[in-house]
C-alpha cells in the first residue's frame, strides 16, 4: 500500500573536514506528514538541499518519484519547497515574488492569486515582502511551495518565527495537505512542534538516521509500560515490589512503576487496603522520545568540540 515518493539512499557529503551526511537513507510516503527531526547540524537542511538538486552529494541518491530532481522539467509541479523564508528581494511585492516563480513554471497569475488566498496573504499581496514579519514570510514561502499544486512538499523549519496562532494554523494546514494525499516532509529541531501533526518521524543525528518510525510506535517504545501512582502510603512500594514490579520514586508521594499493568496496580492497592489519589498509565511525549533518541548524538557533539 505504501508508494514511496521521496527515496533518499545512502547520501554522503563532506564540507571540508566536516561530515555533513554519513549514509542518510529514508523514504517518504504520500498521504501523511513525515517529521524530519534532529539537533541543529544533524544534516536536515543539507539532505533537503540534495533532494532539491541544489547540493550534489559525494555519493548516494535522492529520487523524487524515481527521478532525480534535476531531471524534472517543471519541478515546482512535482515538489514544492520552502528552505529559507527570508530568501526574498525586499523591494519586490509578495505577489510579484510568486509571479516570477509562476512564470518560470509556465503558470498564470490566476494561480498566484489562488495560493495567496490559501496562505491568507491576499490583503498584503501588493506590499513589499521586505516589510513582512518572519511569520508572514513563512506563509509566503508556503504559498510559493504550493504554486505548482505539487504532490510532494519539502519544508525546512516552517514553524520558525511563527506566533502560537501561526503555529496552530501551520499544523492544521500541513494536516490538510497530507489529507489531500500529498507527501509532506517537515524538518524541525523542536519535536514539540510536530506533536499532533506528524504521522511518521525520521530522527537524524550526525548525518544519519537514528530512528524511522510512526509516532505511535515511537511513543510506545519510550513509555515502556510505566504506571504513575500517587499515594501517601509507605507500604505501597513494598507491596508492588513483592508483586514483581520495579518501583522508583518519582517525587514526593509519587511512584513510577514498571512491569505491572494499571489494573494490576489498582487491584494490589485495594487488596492491601492502601489508599491512593491517582493511578495512570504514563504517556510519553514525543519530546521525551526524541531526547532519548538524540542524547548520544548531542553528547558526541559536545565532546568532540
Amino acid at each position: 500500500m505504501n508508494k514511496t515518493i521521496i527515496a533518499v539512499d545512502g547520501l554522503r557529503k563532506r564540507f571540508g573536514r566536516t561530515v555533513a551526511l554519513d549514509g542518510m537513507s529514508f523514504t517518504v510516503q504520500p498521504g501523511r506528514v513525515t517529521g524530519f527531526v534532529g539537533p541543529n547540524g544533524a544534516g536536515k537542511t543539507t539532505t533537503m538541499r540534495v533532494i532539491l538538486g541544489l547540493d550534489a552529494p559525494d555519493s548516494g541518491t535522492a529520487l523524487i518519484g524515481g527521478q532525480p530532481y534535476r531531471a524534472l522539467r517543471r519541478p515546482l509541479c512535482h515538489v514544492g519547497s520552502l528552505l529559507d523564508a527570508g530568501a526574498l528581494q525586499p523591494s519586490r511585492t509578495a505577489r510579484n515574488h510568486l509571479l516570477w516563480l509562476a512564470h518560470s513554471q509556465g503558470l498564470t497569475a490566476r494561480r498566484v492569486d489562488e495560493v495567496l488566498e490559501g496562505a491568507g496573504l491576499t490583503t498584503v499581496a501588493r506590499r513589499r515582502a521586505g516589510g513582512f514579519s518572519l511569520g508572514m514570510r513563512q506563509r509566503l514561502g508556503l504559498a510559493a511551495a504550493l504554486l505548482g499544486d505539487p504532490p510532494v512538499l519539502v519544508l525546512d523549519e516552517p514553524f520558525n518565527g511563527m506566533d502560537p496562532e501561526g503555529i496552530i494554523w501551520m499544523r492544521g494546514f500541513l494536516k490538510t495537505l497530507a489529507a489531500q494525499g500529498r507527501a509532506v516532509l517537515v524538518s524541525s529541531h523542536l519535536m514539540s512542534e510536530l506533536q499532533d501533526t506528524a504521522d511518521h518521524v525520521v530522527v537524524v543525528g550526525r548525518g544519519r538516521v537514528i530512528a524511522d518510525a510512526s509516532v505511535v510506535q515511537l511513543l510506545a517504545a519510550t513509555a515502556n509500560g510505566r504506571v504513575t501512582l500517587r499515594t501517601d502510603s509507605a507500604r505501597a512500594a513494598t507491596v508492588l515490589a513483592d508483586a514483581g514490579g520495579t518501583v522508583a520514586a518519582a517525587g514526593v508521594g509519587v511512584l513510577s512503576v514498571s512491569g505491572l499493568a494499571t489494573d494490576a496496580v489498582v487491584a494490589l492497592m485495594n487488596a492491601n487496603g492502601i489508599g491512593f489519589s491517582e493511578v495512570s498509565a504514563h504517556r510519553a511525549t514525543l519530546e521525551e522520545a526524541y531526547l532519548e533518541l538524540t542524547r548520544d548524538a548531542v553528547e558526541f557533539k559536545a565532546v568532540s568540540r
Partner: peptide, 18 residues
C-alpha cells in the same frame, strides 16, 4: 549578486534546475 545575497539563488535554481 542580489540573488546570492538574499539566498534567492536557491529558489531560482530549485524552480529551474537547468
Amino acid at each position: 549578486t542580489a540573488e546570492y545575497r538574499r539566498g534567492m539563488m536557491r529558489t531560482t535554481l530549485a524552480a529551474s534546475p537547468r
